[in-house]
Amino acid sequence: MYGMEQINTATGFANAKFGSSKGQGAKGFDEPEIRILELSKYVIKFELLNTDLSVANSLRRIIIAEVPTMAIDLVEVKENTSALHDEFIAHRLGLIPLQSFNVDQFNLSDQCACSSMCAQCSVQFKLHAVCSDRDQMEVNTRHIQPLSDAPIIPVQYVNDKGIEEDPILIMKLSKNQQLDMNLVARKGNGKIHAKWSPVATCQMRKEPIVEIDQDKINRDLDIEKRKEFVALCPREVFAFNDYRNAVEIENSDKCIQCIECLRFAQANNLERAVKIAEREDKFVFTVESTGVLTPEDIVSRALQILMRKLYELGTQMKKYGVNAD
């Protein structure tokens, strides 16, 4: 776990401003703001405040599809006597997450100055495995050897206690089978192929608002009914206070808008007593990295891409005489 301040200084996005604040100003927002709720090695949870749904969703879409990473893109098979055939293995190799902290050093291969491949746009690996002395052998990401000193290597997962987990299994070889391949990793993004997407999931939700008219509920419902009301919610948003014998809101954040409570209220003629809504200016994000980038890095890169896009849009609009505001 990282400390909060450390993150702020390290990435400098905690209170980042972006976009044209005037544009949103029309809707009456303050400066957009990000507040980090949780951060671990692979997951970040943060709030995006004072901005519009379109901005939040753009951020989500960019995280999934447009943050560039590295992934194996070209496999040259020299020897494959395994049970699985070449395309099969190549597909699996492509999906292996590679640590892409230095992805900025590389060019996209179609934008690179070189004609086919160079150190600027690709990283070479070698995969060589022979099963000679055992009945069966597992080929995993440790068998992938980098041929250059670029720090792009397959992800090695670490569990909560900081201990390395088993490397990713690629395939199994049985006796006297061997595998000899040259692998080339390239830069790309999730739009081209899912293997370049840096995230496992990127979830976004509006913060829910749950309000109950405590007086009304606690007055009109008997205790049994109140308990029933509390038990109804699949997400345990409500709690039953045993001292007061009353329904309370325990954690409105958990609400998934299943409207079970609303239905119950309607059935008991308490239409107005329960209100469920969502905040239009606050978004909770959970981004789970595949390990190719740190989660905070993914978000900051996504924000940069978004800013660049907005900037480009602004200049283009100006060019055609439209007021960018």
């Binding site: 999934i64 599809a65 998934i256 808008q257």
Partner: peptide
Amino acid sequence: VPQEDLPFSEKNGW
């Protein structure tokens, strides 16, 4: 359809 265009679950990003 690309993944980013598909609907997703509010709860867990499914």
